[in-house]
Design a binder for these strands. Sequence first.
DNA 1: ATTGAGTTAAAGTCTACACAAATTGGAAAT
DNA 2: ATTTCCAATTTGTGTAGACTTTAACTCAAT
Lengths: 234, 234
Amino acid sequence: MTQNTETTSYKDIKRTVLRRIRSGEWQPDTLLPNEQDLAVEFSCTRTTVNRALRELADEGFLERRRKAGTRVLSAPHRQARFTIPLVRDEVEALGGTYRYALVSQQFLPAPEWLSARLALQTGQAAMHVRCMHYSGNTPFQFEDRWIVVDSVPQVKDADFSALGPNDWLVQTVPFTNVELTFLASRADASAAGFLDLPEGEPVFTAERITWLQDKPVTFAKMYFAAGYRMTTQF
Amino acid sequence: MTQNTETTSYKDIKRTVLRRIRSGEWQPDTLLPNEQDLAVEFSCTRTTVNRALRELADEGFLERRRKAGTRVLSAPHRQARFTIPLVRDEVEALGGTYRYALVSQQFLPAPEWLSARLALQTGQAAMHVRCMHYSGNTPFQFEDRWIVVDSVPQVKDADFSALGPNDWLVQTVPFTNVELTFLASRADASAAGFLDLPEGEPVFTAERITWLQDKPVTFAKMYFAAGYRMTTQF
DNA sequence: ATTGAGTTAAAGTCTACACAAATTGGAAAT
DNA sequence: ATTTCCAATTTGTGTAGACTTTAACTCAAT
């Protein structure tokens, strides 16, 4: 491997700047030297410094303003990134064998709460799908999903007995907007039954609404098995 | 071709590419034209195309590999970004008036579960702080935090009656690593009391562990009030 | 004091080019 | 049929320089 001496890449600069921030050399609110000066210090072009600082700002460490310069941001403005994995990937990442099972699938007029939530006409047709995701024989996630028939007419001919509704949707309809919500909910009778836990138990829950342009496509509520934790490091 | 010749910024390219993905013109798994060809199409340099595609890849829309090219990612591999706000900011963003209250503050040897979790010596000294965050007079969050004295000796003289431990830590110690976990837990007697909800109720909970280099600094468990939802759109 | 206009420093972006690094796909060797 | 190796392609990153946009600052006029 070729160790290029003295080449300062934007990654080196990022590392160095981060180190100075973390060591306290550049405290929060400190104004950094301008790009040109840093370019001289690191003996590279301003372009390279620019990229390094731009990315650090993007990652929430710095704040940059034209003419005002670049300053160190107080820590807690940071952002966290979570990967939203497919259930299958998540199960397999944990060393399990993924298994899917359809629970029920039927046409229904959209219930009132759903119509309100997705801004549907009252009584618009919807496909209601409930299914389970297992890791081996252990329940992993119970999914309760509504698909708006007007937005996805093909769903009338869909069969979710082998292919999960999420996979089917991904293959079938593109989407433009997603709203993802996490909350702690209480296991109702059916979720408790499928996830094999006592009714009323706290359940980590994700709600996902997907739109295609302005048209709501699907609303999904996913109940995770007991003990589920969503973790990220940064 | 209604290609506008006035502006060919990387933002225009991002917009156009996104539109093509969303319109279905470039379905998931589609291989995009290479940078050089796109540069010709947009009549700009490859550098500009590179920046546009790089950012889109960063945002989770594309996957790029040398020699293999750039392809559209199937949707669910996407990442979601959550801003981790300060409680104060969150309360104020919801239109409330933030209020802080210290519940208790005392030195204790770290309990076993904490020593295990943070890889401490058994019986290492710790500062245990419990406090409340209110929106007006409505409970918003109950915080239960441990601070490792060895890592933050100044904590011996800290007074958390006016300034919250998180704000104090941010001002006092830098940190290098954070692990953030979300889960649904069951309100124990004290959390239930402070948050004004029945014992055993599901509570959306965040755990945050912070390190300085290899040294664990603090472990915080934050219990949110009933009905709390963490939402993101993308 | 307050307002307003001009100056100017700093970041933002683009061009044009060069070389580096990865990795695919195929040819050659086994 | 399989493995090894090479070349071609594509993205990754850097240099050098120019022009643009924003907004902090200054100073004069109200």
